[in-house]
Structure formats: structure tokens, C-alpha cells
């Protein structure tokens, strides 16, 4: 029991931080800005989910590069688990963003380069899953997916970070500098919740990733056993 707790302390910490983010995010004082008003509190959730998506897709890129270098099946399994986790957090980020857009811009979706780029980025990662499903041979699938994943991350980054900055008219905040981190983007009074929120969402993303990975590894091991016996 104690051993289990020792191994899982960071998960408990993540949950405690998330509870703090919910309480602090909804109860602490926030700046009263026109249009956005109280909905600014969504920054602790929406931005956290998107940053987690970027963090975990970056991890997927690292695992794919490691697979291409060392050809270890574990790295391929880690990469696909990270992409699956990224898709979960990306979907949550899109949904929280849509609700926020409805309350500030009046519509669930507006024709904005940042929003469209986010969807294209998600579709790129969905295509990664389709690509994996279309190749039966394990090694070929892993190699193809790893190469595709390198391009997927670069394209994803271009669509959500570079193209929106080049576009002249984007109403999405954070198209200059680092979104939500620049001094003009985030009020100092929000930092005591924002930074723990980022850490909490990252921990949750890593936890979900580790579960996906262990599940995929189990399937892989069972498949190997089934083939041998």
C-alpha cells in the first residue's frame, strides 16, 4: 500500500493541484475586462488542455525519433500512446474553446486562422491513427508512423503557432509572443492559479499517457504470446 503510494505520489499531487485550480479558478479574483468578463477563468482550463496537448505531442515526436534511431518497439508504443493522449486533450481543448467562443464572440466557431489551424492540426494526428491502422506489418507500420509523426508535429506547430501569427486578422488572443505567458496577456493576479494549472494538466496528461502505453504494451505482449503458442 505504502509502496503504491510512493510510486503514485505525483498522481495524487496532480489531483490535489487540479482541485486547487477548480477552487481558485472559480473563486479567486480576476481582472474585469470588457467582453471577456468572468469567462477569462476558462484560461486555466482551455489553455492548460492545449499546452498539455502540445507537450504530449512533443513527447510523441521524441519517441518517434528514438524509434527511428534505436528500432525499439517500446518507443513506437510510447509514440502512439502519446498521440492518443494528445488527441484526447486536443478534443477537450477544442470543446472548452468552443464554449468560450460562444460567450465572447457569439458563435461556437468563427472563421479564424488559429481555430482552423487547430482543427487541421487535430486532423493531421487523426490521419496518423488512420495510417497506423492501414499497415499490417508491424515493423513497416512503426517506421512509417514514426516518419509521419515527425512531419505531423512540424505541421501541427506551423498550423497553430506560425500561420496564425502571419495572418493579419486573428481575433484569438495570444497571436503575439508566447500566448498567455507574455506580461500583457496574463494579469499577475492570475498567475497563482495559472502556473499550478499548467503543471496539473501536464501531470494528468502524463498519467493518461502512461495508462495508454501500458495497455498497448499489454496488447502487444499478448499478441506476441499468441503468435508463439
Amino acid at each position: 500500500m505504502i509502496e503504491n503510494f510512493k510510486a503514485s505520489w505525483w498522481k495524487f499531487l496532480g489531483i490535489l493541484m487540479l482541485l486547487y485550480v477548480v477552487a481558485g479558478g472559480l473563486l479567486f479574483e480576476v481582472p474585469q475586462l470588457p467582453v471577456i468578463r468572468e469567462s477569462i477563468r476558462n484560461v486555466y482550463f482551455h489553455v492548460g488542455m492545449w499546452f498539455s496537448m502540445m507537450f504530449i505531442t512533443f513527447a510523441a515526436l521524441v519517441f518517434s525519433i528514438r524509434y527511428l534511431r534505436y528500432q525499439r518497439a517500446e518507443d513506437d508504443l510510447r509514440a502512439v500512446a502519446a498521440v492518443k493522449t494528445g488527441l484526447v486533450f486536443g478534443t477537450l481543448g477544442l470543446l472548452t474553446g468552443m464554449v468560450w467562443a460562444k460567450f465572447t464572440w457569439g458563435q461556437f466557431w468563427v472563421n479564424d486562422p488559429k481555430l482552423n489551424g487547430a482543427v487541421v492540426g487535430m486532423l493531421i494526428y487523426l490521419a496518423y491513427m488512420v495510417l497506423r491502422g492501414s499497415v499490417e506489418e508491424l515493423e513497416k507500420r512503426a517506421r512509417l508512423a514514426a516518419v509521419y509523426n515527425v512531419f505531423a508535429f512540424v505541421l501541427f506547430f506551423v498550423f497553430i503557432m506560425i500561420l496564425p501569427r502571419m495572418a493579419e486578422a486573428s481575433i484569438h488572443p495570444g497571436t503575439d509572443g508566447n500566448p498567455a505567458l507574455a506580461s500583457g496577456d496574463l494579469a499577475p493576479m492570475m498567475r497563482k492559479v495559472f502556473f499550478p494549472a499548467m503543471a496539473a494538466w501536464f501531470i494528468l496528461a502524463w498519467w493518461v499517457f502512461s495508462l495508454y502505453y501500458r495497455l498497448d504494451r499489454l496488447r502487444h505482449q499478448i499478441a506476441e504470446l499468441t503468435e508463439n503458442y
Binding site: 487540479l18 482541485l19 477548480v22 477552487a23 472559480l26 473563486l27 493518461v208 495508462l211 495497455l215
Partner: peptide, 24 residues
């Protein structure tokens, strides 16, 4: 009430993840 409900959802999610971990 909103804080309590969202906290309950997060605790439920945590319990589900621990359950999955146990099963795996």
C-alpha cells in the same frame, strides 16, 4: 455548488484512472 460539482467530477475521474491502473 459549481466548485463542488466540478471537484466531484475530478475526483471521479481520478478514481476511474486509479481503477484502470489497478486493472492494468
Amino acid at each position: 455548488v459549481a466548485v463542488a460539482v466540478i471537484s466531484l467530477i475530478i475526483l471521479g475521474l481520478a478514481a476511474f484512472l486509479f481503477y484502470l491502473e489497478h486493472r492494468i
